[in-house]
Design a binder for these strands. Structure first.
Lengths: 239, 239
DNA sequence: GCAAAAACTTGATCCAACGCAAGTTATTGG
DNA sequence: CCAATAACTTGCGTTGGATCAAGTTTTTGC
């Protein structure tokens, strides 16, 4: 990895962000220093791929800033977006399931800053920071929960309802308040939403155009603001 | 739980089955005795519900014999079947994700024999048997893997393809060889397959009738035998 | 600064899958 | 043993969403 550098060399930013993240919240100064010393850090440009499904899991990651998309590509070349990782969360934690390879592809949805540790350091980090193991398990549980909900949605809800649910999830996890509503904090296209919901891009466009007209959302190229989450919730729940 | 009994009191059967299960394979005699002593066992009739989604996770389970279905029910009363647990596997392991409640409902798909331990014994069991923690993590990983695949399938495959994939998965995990092919080892209805694939029962019936006619499967009431898994694989993969 | 590409829209057409209707066959229970 | 119920089938009309087609608008790169 030519682009990675030792994390501590970079000084304060990583240290501050590390302390703010869930898996390493409230740990002592010297231990924090040691954990940072063992880490590498890396900046990603939007669109960069960090690892691919079936790749050997040589490292695990903590997202310090930005958004990372977890996805799978089918043999036919279709992409399905499974999850968006937000700052402060672990990802690429194959080790937590005794797995030797990644099960998904990780791609930056925006410019990102990530910390990583080689997989052989897993036990060492868990030892240095007792909260780490629990954080990894919680991450896994939350992801499991989201996948399960998605299966249920895909089995029981219409395309319009799935798009509503996807937008609510996006603004909930990665929302920025604006004066007209909550905006998704990273660039997102109709194509992205189609890969997130299993609908085709044309259907997504049609549904969102209608919502634009009725004032539920305000959307421009690569940008979505949800003005009326209450109405989206109504749509997503309708019998 | 009036129906539960101390496991050891029941003698040899549980002991033998415990040793044969992945999470407790190859553990020493006295330790095995202690683990059994801490367990309760219970027999379930097909259709019995063991726990429900959102229930307080008071225990975790090891399936010794039979098949357990993990499912979710929507507010509208639709059921979605998420997973089938086979003998020798752990389930209801909310503890493994630091969760205090079950995320799914567990219902016996056939008559079952289960062992259970109260949640507070989690750490004790892990201590008695070092392989237990790893087995729990592997179970979680496998389930994650299955949920992820399901999301991808639902997003990209037709109803016919999803039914083919479901039957392949069923015979793969719970298949019994017969002279005409591999039979699903527990009773399964069109309704069940519809809840497993997100298709409606009529569509499932139509697709399976066609396969019956072309000799791919042999199906009678509550019973499915896959005669030509190769053809089902072809169907599931087609562009 | 202009061409090419990417993002998005909107209309028209088509079909896979759903929902309805009306059956048959097998199982269960009083 | 017979009624009630559960499981399954099949035809037919309808429709949600995909596909096809043809655009406009915005961004990117030489």
């Amino acid at each position: 990895m030519a682009k990675t550098k030792n994390a501590q060399a970079n000084g304060g930013l990583e240290k501050a962000l590390l302390s703010a993240s869930v898996p390493f919240a409230g740990i002592e100064g010297p231990v924090r220093g040691e954990i940072l010393r063992l880490a590498s850090h890396r900046r990603l440009k939007a669109g960069d791929t960090l690892f691919r499904q079936a790749d050997d899991a040589r490292a695990f990651f903590l997202l310090l800033d930005g958004f990372v998309r977890l996805l799978r590509t089918t043999r036919q070349g279709e992409q399905v977006v499974l999850h968006h990782v937000t700052a402060g969360n672990l990802f690429g934690i194959a080790k937590a399931t005794e797995s030797k390879s990644y099960s998904v592809t990780a791609r930056a949805a925006s410019d990102c800053l990530v910390l990583s540790w080689t997989s052989d350091l897993w036990d060492r980090i868990a030892e240095l920071n007792p909260a780490f193991g629990a954080a990894a398990r919680r991450t896994l549980g939350a992801r499991m929960q989201e996948m399960t909900s998605k299966v249920v949605e895909m089995a029981t809800r219409s395309v319009e309802q799935r798009i509503a649910l996807a937008l609510l999830r996006l603004t909930d996890k990665a929302g920025v308040a604006t004066d007209v509503g909550t905006e998704v904090a990273f660039p997102i296209t109709r194509q992205d939403i189609s890969e997130l919901t299993g609908a085709n891009t044309h259907s997504v466009s049609r549904v969102m155009s209608a919502w634009q007209r009725s004032g539920i959302i305000q959307s421009h190229r690569r940008k979505v603001i949800v003005a009326r989450p209450d109405l989206l919730a109504d749509i997503s729940m309708a019998a």
